[in-house]
Design a protein around this nucleic acid. Sequence first.
DNA 1: CTATAATGTGACGAATTCGTCATGCCCCTG
DNA 2: CAGGGGCATGACGAATTCGTCACATTATAG
Lengths: 117, 117
Amino acid sequence: MHLSTPPSAIFPDRLRRAREYRGLNQAELAQKAGMQPSAISHFETGTRKPSFDNLRILADSLDVTTDYLLGRVEEFKALAGADRLHRHYESLEGSDRKMADELITMLAKRAEEKGKS
Amino acid sequence: MHLSTPPSAIFPDRLRRAREYRGLNQAELAQKAGMQPSAISHFETGTRKPSFDNLRILADSLDVTTDYLLGRVEEFKALAGADRLHRHYESLEGSDRKMADELITMLAKRAEEKGKS
DNA sequence: CTATAATGTGACGAATTCGTCATGCCCCTG
DNA sequence: CAGGGGCATGACGAATTCGTCACATTATAG
């Protein structure tokens, strides 16, 4: 319904977005990640996909989640540290977080049922 | 500070943990993910690492984040709880999402003020 | 102990990424 | 026009994973 395997074609966009968000050009990211600039270009144009190790290195270098790079989550919590709301949520403790959880879960469930009918 | 590159040796453990958490044996996970059982075994014993595509497929099949599988986040925040909540949040639209935003923001602000005094 | 299930291990050719490098193409600035 | 930054593209051999399969080893029963 919402998580069919997304076309792996999302990755190039996400990578470029994250890189530009960090204000880096391909060469700078390449150096940070210990790769050749051409490797970054290949990733962003979709002619190659990163290996297991390089995927993690890229995520580390850009300080984003791998789930964001893979298109498994939307922008929300994607650019990890940068999102205000997400930070707020993460700052919640105990009963406060539970309250937020319950509201969101309830809303999602209600919306889903509405969609069904 | 908190995100040094972890040894890629964490992945085999995480994969096994997640698989067992879902109550699957290697063959069942293999079928779900469209792979051979031996592939799962190779991953869990560390003799192979999954490719870009297979990593995502594994995360999908087990309903965990790739960041969890890669050891980029700590233990159980990555399984069911927080991440499912984020997906719920992402599924919200319009006024529902706004409502969730406002609650979270309000709670965070309130907690912050409380901490100050 | 004996089956049976579950997992581990290692081969095979095919496919892909690896790192490295050269080259071409824009776009801008001088 | 000349130079340079940024990016795209494609080659090369080396390394790795791919899917598939056979077989060994290790639990878990009955």
